[in-house]
Simulated scan of single mutants.
Amino acid sequence: MDVEAIAAFGRDSGIHGFMNTKWGWPTIESVHFIALSVLLGSVGLFDLRALGFAKAIPMPALHRLVPFGVAAFAVNVVTGAMFFVSAPDQYMFNPAFRLKFACMAVAGLNVIVFYSAFAKGMRGGEGVSASLPVKIVAAVSLGAWIGVMMFGRLITYFRPPYHWCFAC
């Protein structure tokens, strides 16, 4: 990816201009964090239940919250793209951003594994424990989303120069 081409897209589309207004960046960052909270609040609760917490709550009941998490993820993709095209040089070469993206990839692959192998046979009424493979998938999911949050927060502390990225 070419930093200049991405920056030009941000400028030409008006995203860069909006993000650099008095309220642009803070508003989009607030929306990004709220959506991440909804995502973790829905997917994280399901993962914790699968790991054995709150066994009084049936797993299918928590699974009904997943569409809210999917919608929140979509909001995060849009707001995250707005950050990226507004300052691509601060993201492309940032090790925290790269690690955040890696954690998002792990979470995405994990969702594919869950829905292709385990979701259809998922039972889990009140007091029922999830199977060991489902617990592993839930632990990976929780760890990946915690990584997304942690590395996302660290992005602001790493404002790297171009020479930091040896793979770019």
Rank of each mutant, 00 (worst) to 15 (best):
M1Y: 13
D2W: 06
V3F: 07
A5R: 12
A5H: 09
G10M: 01
R11S: 10
D12P: 07
S13H: 09
S13W: 10
I15M: 07
I15V: 15
M19A: 10
M19K: 08
M19F: 14
N20W: 08
N20S: 09
W23K: 13
G24N: 03
G24L: 02
T27Q: 00
T27N: 00
I28K: 04
I28T: 10
S30Y: 03
I34M: 12
L36F: 15
V38M: 09
L39S: 10
L40W: 09
L40I: 14
G41F: 04
G41D: 04
S42Y: 03
G44I: 02
G44A: 08
L45V: 00
L48R: 00
R49M: 08
A50K: 02
L51W: 01
L51I: 05
G52P: 15
G52F: 15
K55P: 08
A61F: 09
L62F: 12
R64M: 13
V66E: 10
P67G: 07
F68K: 00
G69R: 02
G69F: 04
V70I: 13
A71C: 11
F73Y: 09
F73R: 00
N76G: 15
V77R: 08
V78E: 03
F84L: 13
P88M: 07
P88W: 04
Y91Q: 02
N94M: 10
N94D: 12
P95M: 11
R98I: 15
L99F: 14
F101C: 13
A102H: 02
C103V: 01
A107W: 00
L109E: 08
L109G: 15
N110Y: 03
V111Q: 14
V111T: 15
V113P: 03
S116I: 13
F118Q: 00
F118I: 01
F118V: 01
G121Y: 08
G121D: 14
M122G: 06
E126H: 10
E126F: 07
G127F: 12
A138R: 00
V140G: 06
V140T: 12
S141T: 05
L142F: 13
A144W: 01
I146N: 05
V148T: 12
M149D: 02
M149F: 15
M149I: 15
G152Y: 03
G152T: 06
R153I: 14
T156C: 12
R159D: 14
R159P: 10
H163C: 11
C165E: 11
